[in-house]
């Protein structure tokens, strides 16, 4: 392990540290994140039943653990799972968003991974883009492809890949507005790497969702309308 000397900086994950984002961007990202978390809390209180709780715990634990595992990508870079789409597909956008927020809070407060002032941006980029954008893209693709395993695999793969690439593009825009790096250069670099990192995201997300679909399909999120009609049967 010749690289052990740089161990300290190596674990600084893909999270935005304090100092990269300007005050206006911090404000906008915090307001967006707090707004969406508040709506999520209300939705979970009114729509979710306690049978979701075990999946919330396991999903959060798995995403935290998986985010520690940086996988190498060609060109001397690495990436790790973000997990937003995974949480969205398994738990739905609302409980999924809560779980992602817990992951980033533990990382930021306990392990100094990602800035505290930048936490709103990190939750938004790496969590909520996946739990909302990823989830609704997954549902759209699944409705087009079919409700069986194939629809789940194709939908999950496309949604998780796009959520990572979108997150990197949004981060590039935030960095550019903050005056940290020019838009075009930052965008090219960020999206360039995350096009490859997204493939890793898709592989892990598809494998995990398929595993749960095969072992405990009853745990997968179905929107409340479907849930109600099932209960009425």
């Amino acid at each position: 392990m010749p690289q052990f000397l740089i161990l300290n900086s190596a674990f600084l994950a893909m999270h935005i540290p304090d100092g990269f984002l300007s005050l206006p961007i911090l404000g906008v990202t915090w307001i967006s994140t707090i707004g969406l978390i508040t709506i999520s809390l209300k939705q979970v209180e009114s729509d979710y039943q306690d049978r979701t709780v075990p999946l919330m715990g396991v999903c959060a634990a798995f995403i935290f653990a998986a985010q520690m595992i940086n996988f190498p990508i060609p060109g001397g870079t690495s990436g790790h799972l973000l997990g937003g789409t995974l949480a969205g597909v398994l738990l739905g956008p609302w409980a999924g968003s809560l779980v992602m927020s817990v992951v980033f809070m533990v990382q930021g407060f306990v392990f100094q991974d990602g800035g505290i002032t930048a936490m709103g941006a990190n939750i938004f980029n790496m969590g909520l883009i996946g739990t909302f954008g990823g989830y609704y893209l997954f549902r759209t693709v699944r409705n087009l492809v079919g409700q069986g395993l194939r629809g789940i695999v194709v939908g999950t793969a496309i949604a998780s890949w796009f959520s990572v690439v979108t997150a990197s593009a949004i981060a590039a825009i935030q960095l550019a507005i903050s005056g940290t790096v020019p838009l075009l250069i930052g965008m090219t670099a960020m999206v360039g790497w995350h096009v490859m990192i997204g493939v890793g995201e898709a592989l892990v997300t598809v494998a995990t969702v398929t595993f749960i679909w095969r072992s405990r399909p009853d745990l997968l999120y179905t929107s409340s309308k479907k849930m109600n009609s099932e209960l009425l049967r």
Binding site: A13, D18, M68, N70, F71, P72, S78, A171, L175, I197
Partner: peptide, 30 residues
């Protein structure tokens, strides 16, 4: 976890390549 890649990840790599890594707050709240 001990076998995770030690390469810089997406954002770290970009911050190194485009020389804005030093903007990160050394004395952060965390």
């Amino acid at each position: 976890s001990p076998f995770a890649s030690k390469n810089p990840d997406g954002l770290d790599r970009v911050a190194q390549d485009l020389k804005f890594e030093s903007k990160s707050e050394k004395d952060s709240i965390a």
